[in-house]
Write a protein that binds this DNA or RNA. Structure first.
Lengths: 127, 127
DNA sequence: TATCTGTTATATTATATGTATAACAGATAG
DNA sequence: CTATCTGTTATACATATAATATAACAGATA
């Protein structure tokens, strides 16, 4: 099964970031399981019509963050050991990202319940 | 009362974005109330040791997003009518931001409860 | 008049993004 | 052995963003 990638070339979000997010979402949804193979940088680039180096940048970061392994022989593979569990560093990064989102939501009259319910709804997407 | 601004010049987050976030956080916490004045672009720039145009960029975006008003005479003022309530456009943008955060958190073994509790804890900071 | 305001215009430097082309070394299939 | 595919590295180029630096203008104010 091939994960279908959908890019928005007009978006402010860089292409390599969109690619990363969709692969991570694929893992979260279970469409990509530990050990599953991913297309080579060249074929992925050809498939979605972008440059080899843009794919490579996404892959390198996914490797750096523990989502995938890249073997010279076996190619690109979803980390068979699973992704490293959330540690303090990750939680700290997450909080730094969430903080301004919550601040703005409060300014715009969203209360805690509304926000949490929205998050809860997003969690339901991954199951 | 002057809102104290704390910048990290080493951060990946652009300076004007840090400034925006801290002003929005000030509003969310009630340190800045509707009608309160903000320093002029020049004095704010001098206070925190950055360029006038960097402050101006933050102010222009805050104005564009409805957080502040800029009068030729009265100077810079927190929107006296309050910020525009969350509409569908805002919720859609918020979802686009939260989606990849939740995907990665799931990959890293955080379940829904853990994530919601973390958000809840952040909400408590604004009261 | 002098000063402060927001605003606009230019210019420069540095970094990020994306593409293009090329090459190298290891593995594999014919 | 040859040809092909792999990840990887190196350069180069174009564009956009971020941040700074000066400078100027017009309106308001002391």
């Amino acid at each position: 099964m091939t994960l279908l990638i959908n890019l928005d070339l007009e978006s402010d979000e860089p292409i390599y970031t969109q690619l990363k997010h969709q692969i991570i979402a694929g893992i979260a949804k279970g469409l990509l399981k530990p050990g599953d193979g991913l297309p080579s940088v060249r074929s992925m680039a050809a498939d979605i019509g972008i440059n080899l180096h843009t794919v490579n940048k996404a892959y390198q970061q996914l490797k750096q963050e523990g989502f995938i392994l890249i073997h010279r022989q076996k190619g690109v593979v979803v980390n068979p050991d699973g992704v490293q569990q959330a540690d303090e560093e990750y939680r700290s990064k997450l909080i730094k990202t969430l903080h301004p989102l919550i601040a703005e939501s409060l300014c715009r009259g969203m209360n805690e319940d509304e926000f949490l319910q929205l998050c809860s709804r997003l969690f339901k997407e991954f199951s």
